[in-house]
Design a protein around this nucleic acid. Structure first.
Lengths: 237, 237
DNA sequence: GTATTGCATATTGTTGACAATCTTCTTGTG
DNA sequence: CACAAGAAGATTGTCAACAATATGCAATAC
């Protein structure tokens, strides 16, 4: 990091903000698991700050829905049950439809170039059976679509729900090479609809994609579940 | 407050949580205005607590989008510009459609009774030209609809956006007796569609209602604005 | 008169200390 | 041996003190 960059960080970032971001990363990428306690004193030692900023960060994370704070008992990474995950998926599907429609209407050549480059990278990841890379690109593609829809509140609202889902999806995100290939085809179709300006198709494809993801979650949890049955050979998200 | 209630509050509610709720009420009901600074020391004296819990509450409010926290400069009630308000309305319209459809499908006799009672109260408020009471009932009706949709994440997502809009709407919420009467008719139609299980109509009415509200906002800000022109004789929200 | 510098004040950011609460372990009793 | 009570330890909640930073005002220089 250059001196100007370091100076900028020092002047604009407080300890609570930095701590909150780090803890959020740890939660989203699985270093902190649902149900796991977050100990003020241990984190204070680990991160080299006093407990005050950690307490402040906890409040932000609580409001973001990633942790639960119980007076006198401590803070835990929040656990999400299947009912709540279902509810999130239901709302997410509607928002995905909105994202697809708006992105298809608003996108320009630069945006399409970007999405197509992401698809190309995803193709490489599938060829190399690099599941981790594919997962990261998958997330990035959806994030970019939400941003290209051109409504920041929509993007934020979507991201909030997706972050909460991360508490749950990690337990149920199971895939193999066949399902990766299928997922890639779905993403290609979505990007194609968006880049040709077909708002209705883009919306429908993204909504179906979300519903598949939800069905697949149920299949992993309970193969006999009726919702899971609709996910026979669909993509793993 | 009874002793058991007071004991319950004491055992389960921390100072930061109480402070956050109080500040949020002050923001939503206009006692604290957008742009207004929130001084730790002054609030500490006012609320009778030390600065630590206040700082914690600020972090929660920041994550909720109601305040901005700038390092070394302090905390201010967030100001919302018309672009952001537009974006919120756009997302809100889609969520309202979802709420209307789901409420119409899921509602039972108790829920309908509740909504009809609220409409009756709103009729009284209109008869008595009690604008404040009508406003509170109006908000309550929308909140109950969102709850009756039967998806908690949808309700929370909707509430978050509505809370943020409160930062802006207070400046633009203008009405008179004629517009109150019109608003009441719209709400009657919405409740009627929901209670007869007409999901499509309920969704369409709620979306139109939201779009009217947005248009009206623009009319107050700039009568020559093209978006405002579509709100000629519509209801004030 | 204007611009710059220095100082005082107000406020924020962080830390450590103390009190309160919960959990776990140990001891005593039946 | 099982259960209850008490003590110890771990942790959280809050406060006050100190350091750091921003803002406003007065004094000085050009």
């Amino acid at each position: 990091m250059s001196f100007p960059d370091a100076l900028n960080v020092l002047k604009s970032r407080s300890l609570p903000a930095l701590v909150q971001e780090e803890l959020e990363r740890m939660i989203i990428d699985g270093r902190l698991l649902p149900g796991e306690p977050l100990r003020e004193v241990a984190l204070s030692a680990l991160l080299g700050v006093s407990r005050g900023p950690i307490r402040e960060a906890f409040r932000g994370l609580e409001e973001k829905g990633l942790v639960t704070v119980v007076k006198n008992c401590g803070v835990h990474v929040r656990t999400l049950d299947v009912d709540e995950a279902d509810q999130i998926y239901e709302v997410r599907a509607v928002l995905e439809g909105m994202i697809g429609a708006k992105a298809a209407r608003e996108i320009g050549p630069e945006g399409c170039g970007e999405l197509r480059a992401l698809i190309a990278s995803m193709e490489e990841a599938v060829s190399g059976s690099d599941i981790n890379r594919y997962t990261a690109l998958n997330f990035h593609l959806h994030d970019r679509l939400a941003a290209l829809a051109g409504n920041r509140k929509l993007h934020e609202t979507y991201n909030r729900l997706v972050s909460e889902l991360a508490l749950f999806r990690r337990q149920t995100y199971v895939h193999n090479e066949a399902s990766l290939a299928l997922s890639l085809e779905e993403h290609k179709a979505i990007v194609s609809a968006v880049c040709t300006g077909d708002a209705e198709r883009a919306a429908a494809l993204l909504q179906a994609h979300t519903r598949d993801s939800r069905s697949r979650m149920h299949q992993v949890l309970d193969p006999a579940d009726p919702i899971a049955r609709s996910a026979n050979t669909r993509s793993p998200e």
